[in-house]
Design a protein around this nucleic acid. Structure first.
Lengths: 343, 343
DNA sequence: CTGAAAGCGCTTACAG
DNA sequence: CTGAAAGCGCTTACAG
């Protein structure tokens, strides 16, 4: 069944069928009705390949997801896809390893599939700085800011990671903790998301003149349960006297929680624990995880919006911060028993 | 940059370039080398739309995922995609609601994108029975058996759910539990996956002549944390004297665990808990969840293989069972204190 | 082994 | 408002 068959059945030319299908204004009401009738009746769907070949583009929006075991992204993928499908967009999801070069991948993707826009979930600014220049289509980066890069076709949307992490540490300090460990990301790669979080935490510590030995009290870690588990073991065996740990993602934090248990430390009895992200699981684990809740609903909605605005209305790139919320949960407790009544 | 430019640069016709690109045997070694040189040099990628338009198919394999908050599927998606990409296949992932009609969706998808094969993650046999006849491309269903349906182009791969659930209940019985609740899926829709699990559990109970009042001791539930939580509250307030609960998925089970905590019951102190799936989180929650571990690695690998075999070699459809493993975890304990030393 | 040519199913100036 | 026709970038019989 092609446009040709529809034309024959409706008694018109293929051009007219095409115009009806694409909602061109210059078709008579009678003709439009006739054609639509046949189309409905036959359950006709135009061939996407032919359509895109002709239009020199694909109708799909690509979602490039970096880091597969990251449940925050699972949530974002779901919400973003729902938003795009709701706006009549087709969506292609691609999962990349946490360490993959998402921009190089996108360049390849554009050659092969010619999407009309790309939404990056997670991204290393280094990769963008190096390779994004090759990309000319509208793109949006979620969970990192691309403002400094100044690309005209790259918007971004992120939680204020520095500020949020600062508040997380602030909260631990307010509960009397001074021997705090930080775990996650990398201390040396400033283009990655973990870096701003770490810096925010360090700022807070400095502001309160709390000592922090990066070499000892910080442990790098990838975004997975197993890596969080292993990193916690390394951190705690190096610094057994920590009273609190701040993990830069919830998934890691849940790994940490399990590791602490296995080392015979209770949470929050012996060690307090904060995560970052606010994934659903944080509200269901035992104890409930104290965390920074990123607003994935808003990020997905605005991210999709910004992308579509740029695709259809050529709106300029924009960079926004998404509000976050500190969730107290149950995994942090005051270090001095006599402050307990304040809770 | 098109095949025409390459032809000009290589000093041959577009036909020859196409033949080189598609590894046709009837091209001289010299020509092949020359063309490849130009292709590499230009970083040329053929236009997929044109290619597929001509070949009357898309090169992509579609992954249709049913149930978005199901972490088992998240894992399967990742593994399957890795397998397919490793075999040089492009992959498109589509997320559907747990209650959506995946087959109707697939029919639509085929009209729009013409994938060369579809892998269904999760599926309701009812939908397949009703609508799959419209589909002619190779398909594989994971986590449910389509053997009875007898479609020549539909393979399937699943854990023996009935047997696995029977063993789960068997395990609880062996630990002295007789007041067991079952939670998840639906007791009346036999085409859904939860049904076989429920039946397996009931078989075990009957075999051991343990009483089970379906109306009271069973609670239906969708595959999410929050639904598991709510269902556990309903089940336990109706039957406060249960000593064990079997949740038909790990995600539900984790919701149940949290609900039990909030009702002041400890796991496994007051209530023992078994899940089903063997997701990573089951090994990290506190206590570790006793569960049936489905072999997602094997399912993804074999599923991809079966699909590709059918696409490229016309191999007939096949239906296989994937071995499972009962994981004891830490969430089940004997109901009689004096059997405790046996552990 | 290679080239010239038809055609996949669509969209869109160009006439009328 | 409508039709006839060109052309998007490829693949593949068909000749030679």
């Amino acid at each position: 069944m092609t446009i040709k068959d529809i034309a024959r059945l409706a008694g018109c030319s293929v051009g007219t069928v095409s115009r009806v299908l694409n909602n061109h204004p210059d078709v008579s009401e009678a003709m439009r009705k006739k054609v639509m009738e046949v189309v409905e009746e036959q359950g006709f769907q135009p061939n996407t390949n032919a359509r895109h070949l002709k239009m020199q583009a694909s109708s799909a929006v690509a979602l490039v997801v970096k880091g597969t075991s990251n449940m925050l992204f699972a949530d974002l993928v779901e919400r973003t896809q729902a938003m795009l499908v709701g706006s009549g967009e087709e969506t292609v999801v691609c999962y990349l390893d946490e360490d993959a070069d998402e921009v190089a991948y996108a360049v390849q993707l554009c050659r092969e599939r010619r999407p009309k826009g790309i939404l990056f979930l997670g991204g290393d600014l280094e990769n963008f700085a190096r390779g994004f220049g090759q990309l000319e289509l509208p793109c949006v980066l979620l969970t990192n800011s691309a403002r400094e890069l100044g690309f005209p076709n790259l918007s971004s949307l992120t939680t204020d990671d520095t500020e949020a992490a600062a508040q997380a540490i602030e909260y631990l300090l307010s509960q009397g903790h001074t021997r705090i460990g930080i775990l996650g990301g990398s201390a040396h790669i400033s283009s990655q998301i973990g870096y701003s979080r770490l810096q925010g935490g360090l700022q807070s510590l400095r502001r309160h003149k709390v000592e922090f030995d990066l070499e000892r009290q910080y442990e790098p870690c990838r975004y997975s349960l197993s890596e969080g588990y292993a990193a916690a073991q390394r951190l705690l065996s190096r610094c057994p006297d920590l009273t609190a740990v701040f993990a830069l993602s919830d998934v890691m934090a849940i790994g940490v929680m399990r590791a602490l248990q296995d080392m015979g430390r209770t949470v929050p009895g012996d060690v307090s624990l904060m995560g970052y992200d606010g994934i659903a699981m944080a509200r269901y684990c035992v104890p409930r995880l104290a965390t920074i809740c990123q607003d994935t609903g808003r990020m997905a909605r605005r991210g999709g919006e910004m992308l579509l605005h740029r695709i259809y209305s050529q709106r300029p790139a924009a960079h926004e911060l998404v509000p976050f919320q500190l969730i107290r949960g149950e995994s942090v407790r005051p270090v001095f028993p006599d402050t307990e009544r304040l809770l």
